[in-house]
């Protein structure tokens, strides 16, 4: 009677957790939109990780929107294991992450190309131009792309050419792209 939306379901899940600590019931639908931010506690991050990594768990399949703007603290996901995390979330439609907190960028993009076949929206903060031999150029079919390059002293400007990873990606997105946001590049496409 009282469940009228995801917020109500969350209250229900929390109640289940409180009343039956050893028999936690959390509907998978609660994992559809996940946001980890600097305000997220270590416990919240660890809880999410444990939920989708548990043996036989289908929670990862329910994740459609995932945003992670955490700092370097917290789960190993933030620094390591991203490719594995992507494997556990095969139905992602939207991904929003800060790159410096991940494992090697090429490995991450390779997994994204192979596994996230339903991805429609990709937001990357602090993309490092020096890592531009990444498989980003092999992505296809995105509707929304937003990239913020890591700039400032010690970081080179990004040259957007037909041969660059982003250039190849943009050419792949020619028939699907609806929204594009780029910051700090030299356009030479």
């Amino acid at each position: 009677l009282f469940v009228q939306g995801s917020r109500s379901l969350l209250a229900l899940a929390l109640t289940c957790r409180t009343l039956r600590r050893r028999d936690i019931i959390i509907p998978d639908v609660l994992f559809a939109r996940v946001t980890l931010s600097r305000r997220s506690s270590r416990a919240q991050v660890a809880s999410f990780e444990a939920s989708i990594e548990a043996e036989g768990s289908t929670a990862g399949n329910a994740v459609l929107y995932f945003k992670n703007s955490c700092g370097t603290w917290g789960s190993r996901w933030i620094g390591l294991g991203w490719s594995h995390a992507l494997q556990r979330m095969p139905n992602l439609r939207s991904l929003d992450v800060r790159l410096p907190y991940m494992e090697s960028t090429p490995h991450f993009f390779r997994q994204l190309v192979i596994g996230a076949t339903n991805l429609q929206s990709l937001t990357l903060a602090n993309y490092e131009p020096a890592c531009d031999d990444s498989p980003l150029g092999d992505l296809g079919g995105l509707r929304r792309l937003s990239i913020d390059f890591l700039g400032g002293p010690g970081h080179s400007e990004y040259f957007l050419t037909r041969d660059s990873a982003l250039g190849r990606a943009l050419l792949n997105f020619r028939d699907t792209l609806k929204e594009l946001s780029l910051d700090s590049i030299r356009w030479n496409l």
Binding site: F173, K178, L180, S181, W187
Partner: peptide, 14 residues
């Protein structure tokens, strides 16, 4: 990119 309806470019040189 004929379907782009929203474009945001910042600090872009040509």
């Amino acid at each position: 990119w004929p379907h782009v309806t929203k474009l945001h470019l910042k600090n872009v040189s040509i």
